[in-house]
Design a protein around this nucleic acid. Structure first.
Lengths: 156, 156
DNA sequence: TTCTCTGCAAATGGTTTGCAAGTAG
DNA sequence: CTACTTGCAAACCATTTGCAGAGAA
């Protein structure tokens, strides 16, 4: 955790930015919730618990800054709010999303399934791929299981 | 074109909605610009040319309604505006997007490359896929060609 | 009539910005 | 000193909503 923060600190400083207490608190929240896809508001509320004096605008500015530095990825699942994800070390980010339309959960798949497709794109369409996103909407395994259990119980 | 409008009219009527002049004008604009991914504002401005009295709210309501009926697909490329795409007849929509980060163009690929992945998802992750989206960001063939030509010209 | 639909204006809500004050090198 | 930051409040802007009037069945 500290190592990761140090690394981000260096990334900031190499561009002339500082790791202020507010930024550090924001980064810590992000690190502690690496699994989730937090919105700016989510981050704001979590940061407020450890640094109550922080302002929402600062959180937005920090998230924007970290996105510019490619520390974060800003994404949009179509629900009207931007969500942020820590990028991993690998130069490419290759995770895909499973978005449950029933419970709203967003799971990730870390495998990269698209390399063959990207090669095909470059050759067949003369399109130089820099990034991609692949999201699936559907019913997640939790909701599937729940539905199955309720069916078995037969007490409706 | 008229056939497509008739079909949409039927889809509306089957759900108790009417194909009003405003809605028809909106649909015509969508049909005439099937290639593009228009925003609500884009549609509004184009519709205004043929029906100047129309209101922006009506366009939004029409786009929303047509999305609910699965005539349109509402999508989000992360630029802060929703964009709309006519769906094809096929029950599934299986096009992917090539988004050029240089000129902003959005091209479509109509092939469906994801069926094998969807099968794997259902088996391996117990995730029932209902829909998906696959977007690539990169440099489109036009910008690639332009860059190549400028290089050849060697007049900087 | 009754229910849908429309245009307008106002409200909403996530995000951004202007600004004066705070802070680090 | 100088440049970067911050909190606050106001501004922005895409989208939604309330409402009274218009229109179709």
């Amino acid at each position: 955790m500290e190592a990761k923060i140090d690394k981000i600190k260096q990334q900031l400083q190499s561009q002339g930015y500082k790791l202020t207490p507010q930024r550090e608190a924001t980064v810590r929240v992000l690190l502690e919730n690496e699994e989730d896809h937090l919105s700016a508001e989510d981050v704001f509320m979590l940061v407020k618990e450890k640094a109550p004096e922080i302002g929402l605008a600062t959180v937005y500015r920090t998230l924007e800054l970290l996105s510019d530095l490619h520390v974060l990825e800003k994404m949009n699942f179509g629900d009207g709010v931007a969500r942020y994800d820590l990028r991993n070390d690998s130069s490419h980010h290759h995770h895909h999303h499973l978005i449950c339309v029933q419970c709203g959960a967003v799971d990730e798949i870390m495998e990269d399934w698209l390399l063959p497709l990207e090669e095909r794109l470059e050759q067949q369409y003369n399109f130089k791929v820099l990034d991609h996103r692949l999201d699936f909407q559907g019913i997640c395994h939790r909701c599937n299981d729940k539905a199955k259990n309720e069916k078995n119980d037969k007490n409706e």
